[in-house]
Design a protein around this nucleic acid. Structure first.
Lengths: 205, 205
DNA sequence: GGATTGACTATACATTATGTATATCTAATT
DNA sequence: AATTAGATATACATAATGTATAGTCAATCC
């Protein structure tokens, strides 16, 4: 006879609570450690007050944990504001707003940078991050299509999209952040995006 | 009595030869493997036909080997042409040439990208790479100072320098390389740099 | 209340990688 | 012929990921 499975509200709630605790401890470890190299399951488990095996039970692997942290950060990172930005009447203002939102996202939690570092050592995790980044690309593409109008060649559009995509990426943000506040970086990226868009009207130079 | 040390031309030549062989095998491994994660000293040693201990004798550590590979690539990457570029009369043309040289450098050897990935897991190696990147920054700074002339504020210069620095970085190059030839990326980055420089004359928008 | 079940724990083990220590081998140099 | 530098062979320490197995404890079901 098959073992009768049953649901347990109190226990699944407790499980969800420990899961949250582990994710919290993991992102804290990422934030405080100076490098992704120190990010071991042992450290995280101890920080969360559980066993390393519990982490495996909940997330399956190191990558699973990293992806869970990534999801958590994306949920609380303010990216939901993108919907409002995309709905703005003026597409150029929408792009400015988009830059603002992403600057906020990149700067809010230093764990974001560590997660980008994790892409180097884990190809599958890199793929997961890349997929989520495609959302940013789609947003940029939609806005630039609205800005460009009809008379602009597809190649010029692709150039503009890829440039703005690169300018709003985390590596660019991190590079420009040396010696600048979040707002200063934001304004600088906005100006650079405007300049990249200028080529849409005047593709000569 | 102290042991009498003596030099041995034939033997140091042989040592240099194996050293070269290990570096060659290491960069080949970086180029062929799909990720830095597979880059182990064991693999490299086997590919070079030596023992893992020989690698330690020559390079001291994994990071030592990576730095040696980095040096090798920098030597044969065409960066010596930068001196000629910097000596050009027209600083804008010099900047174009600089972009060209770096696009060539980033694209010549796919191992460059893997080395950038290694920065994530090895903070000290990251520092070594960063130091060498400062040479690019100094070049950009010198050119922009010549382009800007006297009437431009230091902050506007810093903005221009940091933007051009970010635009000529490896992450930007890698991002723009999807679906573009090396020359196309080069032209795109050059245009973006021109646009970033436009803010030097007109700091209003 | 007693059996069962799910989350967590304890312990052990396999594997892979870096790095260190010691003794040995070999060919070039004195 | 003795010495020496470079390379090897072998062994060991450490740390990290991941798997396997048995055990604990409280919540749930009958």
């Amino acid at each position: 006879m098959p073992p009768r499975s049953y649901v347990s509200p109190a226990r699944s709630a407790a499980a969800a609570e420990t899961r949250e605790r582990v994710i919290e401890a993991a992102s804290r470890t990422l934030r405080e450690g100076e490098s992704i190299a120190r990010f071991s399951l042992d450290t995280v488990a101890k920080a969360a007050g559980v066993t390393r095996l519990t982490v495996y039970n909940q997330f399956g692997s190191r990558r699973g944990l990293l992806e869970a942290v990534f999801d958590e950060i994306a949920r609380h990172g303010g990216l939901h504001q993108l919907a409002d930005a995309m709905a703005m009447a003026d597409p150029r203002a929408a792009l400015d707003r988009m830059v603002e939102i992403f600057c906020g996202f990149w700067s809010r939690d230093s764990a974001v940078g560590r997660l980008h570092d994790a892409m180097a050592t884990d190809p599958e995790f890199a793929e997961a991050v890349r997929e989520r980044n495609e959302r940013r690309r789609r947003g940029v593409t939609a806005l630039i299509d609205r800005i460009a109008g009809k008379g602009v060649s597809p190649l010029a559009r692709k150039d503009a999209v890829d440039l703005v995509f690169a300018l709003t990426s985390y590596p660019t943000f991190a590079s420009l952040s040396a010696g600048r506040s979040r707002d200063e970086v934001c304004r600088l990226v906005q100006r650079a995006c405007h300049a990249a868009l200028a080529n849409l009207s005047d593709p000569s130079s």
